[in-house]
Computed example of a mutant assay.
Amino acid sequence: MEKLSVPTLAREEMLDLTAALRDAVRSHGWNDGILTVFSPHTTCGLTVNEGFDPDVPRDMLAFFKSRIPQDWGFRHAEGNSDAHIKASLMGSSVQLIVEGGEIQLGTWQAVWFLEADGPRRRQLWLKWIGA
């Protein structure tokens, strides 16, 4: 298992991880197989979505904030229940097909990391299964 460090700068943000994951695949010489990317954090999520238009991640964050506000009156003592819900809706992992040493994504797709309780230094776990 490999680990990828992800520093975040705001309480809520979405970071495009596509280039970092492509670099990891190339640097390890992974050719054909499946790359699983997993977040071991209960207030972070992962997804594959549009990577071309910067309004897409902004819209996603705005939607989450409007539907799941931090000050809704949750009972969880840490004050970050909204972050747990957002991360659960997003999911904690993605699986990516790698062929010919390249991550296979659609024309407009990117791999996104959701930080919902930052800023922090996060880690993602990368597990390679070669074909």
Rank of each mutant, 00 (worst) to 15 (best):
H28T: 13
W72V: 07
R58F: 07
C44D: 04
E50M: 02
N49D: 05
G73M: 02
R26D: 11
G45L: 02
D32V: 10
A62L: 12
N31R: 13
K65F: 07
A62F: 10
L35C: 01
D53V: 04
R58I: 08
F63K: 13
S66A: 12
L35W: 06
Q70Y: 09
D32R: 13
D55E: 06
L61C: 01
G29F: 02
R58Y: 09
G29W: 04
W30H: 14
A62R: 15
C44M: 03
S66K: 13
K65W: 04
P54D: 06
M60W: 11
M60G: 06
G29L: 03
G45H: 09
P54T: 12
W30T: 08
L35S: 00
F63N: 09
V37N: 04
L35F: 00
L46T: 05
G33P: 08
D55V: 06
A62N: 12
P57N: 03
F38Y: 13
D59I: 01
P69N: 04
L35N: 02
D32A: 12
A62W: 08
T36N: 10
G29M: 02
K65I: 14
H41N: 05
F74I: 07
F64C: 03
N31Y: 09
S66V: 15
G51K: 00
W30P: 08
P40Q: 05
P57V: 00
G73L: 00
K65M: 04
Q70L: 05
L46Y: 10
R26H: 13
P69T: 03
L35R: 02
D55T: 13
G33C: 09
L35Q: 00
H41V: 08
D53N: 14
K65R: 15
V37L: 00
T36D: 02
R58L: 12
W72R: 15
D55W: 05
W72K: 15
N31K: 14
F74H: 15
F74Q: 09
F38C: 02
A62E: 07
F63I: 11
M60Y: 09
P69D: 00
W30N: 10
P54L: 01
N31E: 13
R58T: 12
C44Y: 03
I68L: 05
